[in-house]
């Protein structure tokens, strides 16, 4: 079954069954492997992408529901959020790194909605993203830093 999707600004056609979750469309059919499989149940956030600007769990979204929606993945994050990517690198936030695409997508959606988040705002927005290595304190610090850089014109 053919589906037309808007991914990272490009319109692409995929031929998959209607119930295929966006996660597997991205990974298996579009070669966008930055989005990770972690649980398949919407519990861990490793598969987070943006749907019309909101961070959502791509493992929970059948491809048939995505007509006309703008999908963004980690592969296009740096264009819009260079400060977030650079603070993640400079703070050595990642340990194993597997959950970090999802963490970054949730962080970006947070900063889009709330350019100056408090610790409580961060904890609230990031609660759906598990990091088994335990990088949470650096995630908080990096989001604050990126927010500061964006506020001073370090990024759009």
């Amino acid at each position: 079954m053919g589906h037309k999707l808007n991914v990272n600004g490009d319109v692409v056609d995929v031929d998959v069954s209607d119930d295929t979750p966006l996660l597997w469309v991205l990974r298996d059919h579009l070669g966008l492997t930055g989005t990770k499989y972690g649980c398949g149940g919407g519990y861990c956030g490793a598969c987070s992408v943006h749907l019309d600007g909101a961070a959502i769990r791509s493992c929970q979204l059948p491809v048939s529901t995505l007509q006309g929606k703008a999908i963004r993945t980690i592969e296009s994050l740096e264009q819009r959020h260079p400060a977030l990517v650079s603070t993640w690198i400079n703070n050595n936030v990642a340990q194993c790194g597997y959950c970090q695409s999802g963490q970054l997508m949730s962080a970006a959606a947070l900063l889009d909605a709330n350019p100056k988040p408090t610790d409580a705002d961060i904890d609230g927005a990031m609660t759906g993203n598990i990091c088994r290595c335990g990088t949470y304190v650096r995630i908080r610090a990096a989001i604050h830093q990126a927010a500061g850089q964006q506020a001073t014109g370090g990024a759009e």
Partner: peptide, 9 residues
């Protein structure tokens, strides 16, 4: 690997 990871690569 920090750069690759932060870019999903």
């Amino acid at each position: 690997d920090a750069g690759d990871i932060a870019r999903g690569q």
